[in-house]
Amino acid sequence: MGFWFSADLWQLTLQATAALLFVSFGVYLPMRAGVLVLGAEGAMLFGCFGAIAAQVLTDGGALAGLLGAVAASTCASALFAAVAISGRVNPIVTGIALNFIAVGGTSVLTAVLFAGEGTIVTPSLEPLPRIELPIVESVPWLGDVVSGQTIVLYAAVLTTPLLALWLNRTRGGLTTRVVGSAPAVAVAAGRSPARTQWIALVVGGVFIGLGGAQLALASAAQFSPGMTNARGFIALALVLIAAQRPWLLLPLAITFAYFDTLGFNLQNIGLPTELSGVLPYVAIIAMLAVPSIARRFRPDAAAEAGGSRVVP
């Protein structure tokens, strides 16, 4: 299987998947409620910072980190909701502002809390514990890849079907979908779009926080200024591809995470390190292109694209 399927590579892929998947959920839920969360990148950065800051300040270990990440990112999402939903400011503008605030705010907070700049890493920081899965653990390859991941990965994988079920089978899910595609209909039925979108954003903030915690605490626990590295924006792209199929987020996140991880490991087979800044983006563009290429080859493409054709 060699390099491309090595257990190490795939183990890291799944580790990266967990963070990306939760951020995608955090973007997906509000998207179904009709809000494009352009501030996910910023919320995730706050989440990463919260994970580290909470650990250092409370000395509470990994659990404190997890809670800190969720709290920080939820606050950021609530700020987004307050400005974009309650303040009725264009969500694109709000998102860009939130990303500025996250980059600047974490930098200022680093200076205030840790009297320094840049990366925060202290020996006392505790990474998320690794969980060994019984039975799976002893399967060759699979044991190395799937077992021994953080709780966040297992939670992310379990959340995928739960999110889909919730959207399809519950009152809240139905309301969310109606608000997202026909807010006037929701209003006519006595449901408040603003309230639904607020809830979606806040719950989304919790998801994004879990993603941030995974990013900051999965391997070497640390915070560095540019660590989210566009994952919040990538999540936006994945969510737009997934559209009305939430389960699709899982394979999409794994695919992107693979190429992301691959980029950093290509130097092992003699390719330049700088490919790590190119490969993930080529991958995401290819992933974005797949649906439109598939559309072109579908027999009913014309009908889907333009309704009925006219023959005078």
Partner: peptide, 26 residues
Amino acid sequence: VRQQLSTVDELSLLENIVFGAESAAG
């Protein structure tokens, strides 16, 4: 029943009919 129909495109017809009355039989 409004002139501007209130069906939601991405919902199934059953979901459209039931939306707003989910708790009645639920």
